[in-house]
């Protein structure tokens, strides 16, 4: 057994190196290994994103363009017919992707900025700040969020800005809890102490030392949170206090065309019309969930990689 050197050398010690790949190569490899559900989820998201981004190019008519014939049936001219005041439903569906997804995304980002920031601060400082924030969050979470949102919206009015702010605030409580819980485990590590002893400020410790380590669960939560926000906005719109006309939005489209269902025995396609925006809502929820599931599995399933 004298073939291996017996003199000690730190550089040579242990050290079969992991194969280094560029970020892009790793991404390709991950995508290839992804389960079918994740691929479906990703394609749904890509499809919706394309719709939202290129809505004016794809939609045959304008978002609020009123055409002479209301309640037009499905035809070559209006693939999904027109609504009660003669707007092309397909066009509104496509613009709806832009509005509903855009507002939901903005709301989720805001919820993460508020909840994540406060959660990190609570985890680092502990003590009274943590107590105040955590108990405050408990109180807010004790009230059913949809009812709370309805109440606040009726007080502040249903503008897009107040919609975004109110839902973001309500949802940030859940983000706060998660961020605090995962950061508490990181805060006790020696490298955080090492950074404090070095004299680093709170901002650096939050951004550079903690955030990279809690990112995987937060990204997965972002996907799920987005779905909930999306559903909340759709429900509020369905109830009439969400996104206001003439802005196209799937939730209010379901409401506006809902009464068409009763004509099912005369024209089946008319009855399907209100189900299409509902289906669009369901599809994106499923797509985002599939993707978030895959990501959660990847970030928690360390065993698979070892």
């Amino acid at each position: 057994m004298t073939d291996t050197s017996h003199t000690y050398s730190a550089a040579a010690e242990a050290g079969r190196l992991r194969i280094r790949r560029t970020r892009w190569q790793r991404l390709q490899l991950e995508l290839m290994k992804a389960p079918a559900s994740a691929k479906i989820g990703l394609s749904i998201i890509l499809f919706y994103a394309a719709m939202a981004l290129f809505a004016p190019l794809i939609a045959p008519y304008g978002e609020a363009e009123i055409l002479p014939q209301p309640y037009a049936p499905w035809s070559a001219e209006h693939w999904l017919g027109t609504d009660q005041i003669g707007r092309d439903i397909l066009s509104r569906l496509i613009y709806g992707a832009r509005n509903t997804i855009g507002i939901a995304l903005l709301t989720t980002l805001l919820a993460f900025a508020i909840g994540g920031g406060l959660g990190l601060m609570a985890a680092i400082s502990r003590g009274w700040l943590d107590q105040i924030l955590s108990r405050g969050v408990d109180v807010v979470m004790a009230i059913p969020s949809l009812i709370f949102a309805l109440m606040l919206l009726s007080v502040f009015g249903s503008s897009a800005a107040s919609l975004i702010l109110i839902i973001a605030l309500l949802d940030s409580t859940r983000v706060f809890r998660l961020t605090r819980a995962v950061s508490v485990n990181v805060v006790v590590m020696d490298y955080i102490e090492a950074a404090r002893v070095r004299g680093e400020g709170l901002g650096w410790i939050m951004r550079r030392e903690i955030l990279p380590n809690i990112l995987p669960p937060l990204v997965a939560e972002f996907g799920l949170r987005f779905c909930f926000v999306f559903l909340t906005i759709a429900s509020l719109s369905f109830l009439g206090v969400g996104i206001q006309p003439p802005t196209a939005d799937w939730g209010s489209m379901v409401r506006e065309t809902a009464q068409l269902i009763q004509f099912a025995k005369y024209d089946l396609s008319a009855a399907i019309t209100p189900l299409i925006p509902a289906g669009a809502i369901a599809m994106i929820t499923v797509g985002v969930n599939f993707t978030a599931d895959w990501f959660l599995h990847k970030s928690s399933g360390l065993r698979d990689e070892q």
Partner: peptide, 18 residues
């Protein structure tokens, strides 16, 4: 702070894994 430095027992947890 600079003039007194510390090295920890568990090098694993003393370095940010990211």
């Amino acid at each position: 702070l600079r003039r007194i430095q510390m090295i920890y027992q568990m090098a694993d947890t003393a370095m940010n894994p990211r």
